[in-house]
């Protein structure tokens, strides 16, 4: 499953953040998004995920193909690891959580409540959700936050397995994930911060001359 984006303009609230974003990710490929803080990586990913409607341009991908992972883990601290995964499995249609548990080594934690785990462990559980979704295009926002070296490697292995299975991924990150074959896109060249073009208050409506 491929993802192809043409001339995309993204907004956050009243502000247009990015314009002219064009890239494509074929099946089996990964794209690393780079850019300084506040450049608009999160905004781009939220637009790809279908949460924020784009101002302009097209996203060629089935919206039901995209699995989105945000900064926030989206875990329920009162539920165990197993219950959290079972919940997402039922939301996305029944998929076997076993590969996800395996990939992120969650078996020892299975009956622990999410609220009792460390930030890194929570992150692993949150990433395991991606495997449970069964969706081919991953859009990930800083997936390695609070992961140690060993688990970053686990994550990279999971991404590689996903790509090898015909999936694709768009990953915003600052660190080197160890995915040498992945393309890199610096989004700072698409940054076009201004008042969004569909805002009729953006250009001056001089009353008389005032």
């Amino acid at each position: 499953m491929s993802l192809s984006v043409t001339d995309l303009a993204c907004a956050r609230g009243p502000a247009q953040i990015l314009a002219g974003v064009t890239f494509s990710v074929a099946a089996g490929q990964a794209l690393i998004l780079r850019g300084p803080n506040g450049a608009g990586k999160t905004t781009l990913l939220r637009t790809l995920a279908g949460l924020t409607p784009p101002l302009a341009g097209t996203i060629e991908a089935d919206p039901d193909a995209i699995a989105y992972a945000a900064h926030a883990d989206g875990l329920k601290s009162a539920l165990t690891v197993e219950e959290n995964l079972a919940f997402w499995a039922s939301v996305f249609g029944t998929h076997d959580p076993a590969p996800a548990i395996e990939a992120f080594n969650l078996a020892p934690l299975l009956h622990r409540r999410a609220g009792e785990m460390s930030a890194g462990q929570k992150r692993r559980l949150s990433l395991a959700r991606l495997l449970v979704t069964g969706r081919p295009v991953w859009c990930l926002d800083e997936p390695t936050v609070s992961l140690d070296v060993e688990n970053v490697a686990r994550f990279a292995a999971a991404v590689k397995a996903h790509l090898a299975g015909g999936g694709s991924a768009v990953i915003a990150t600052h660190i080197d994930l160890g995915l040498p074959e992945a393309a890199t896109l610096d989004i700072s060249r698409f940054v076009a911060k201004q008042i969004r073009a569909d805002d009729p208050f953006a250009d001056s409506f001089a009353e008389g001359a005032a």
């Binding site: 949460l51 926030a72 883990d73 996305f92």
Partner: peptide, 13 residues
Amino acid sequence: EDGTLDLVATSPV
């Protein structure tokens, strides 16, 4: 607050 709403919104539900 914990981001679940974002994730459910991008799910098939």
